[in-house]
Amino acid sequence: MLSCKDITHIASEGLEKEMPFFKRLQFSMHLAMCKNCRHFMDQIELTVNTLSKLEPVKPDQSYVDEQVSSLMNIAQTMHKKES
């Protein structure tokens, strides 16, 4: 029988539907009986879905400007060598 602590350990496996049959059965049985773990699973799923909506943090504008100028130079130098 899985405990609530066990459920919190394997929650991501549960979300990604990658459990062997008997483990999945035990997992589902526990969730059917335990409101607290259902809350936990719903909230972990919401957390993951929220992360998928976030864009990665963008670097500072000055960093982007500097980097772009350096990459453009490299690209143009390479094109010149090729032609």
Binding site: C4, D6, Q43, N49
Partner: peptide, 27 residues
């Protein structure tokens, strides 16, 4: 453990259980 031990009782069941969130979507 992925959560602190003090969230659970000795038998592994929740001591300090997650509360219901009144939020359903990422937005």
């Amino acid at each position: 453990a992925c959560l602190p031990d003090d969230r659970f009782r000795e038998n592994g069941h929740w001591g300090s259980a997650p509360q219901h969130w009144n939020i359903a979507t990422p937005d």
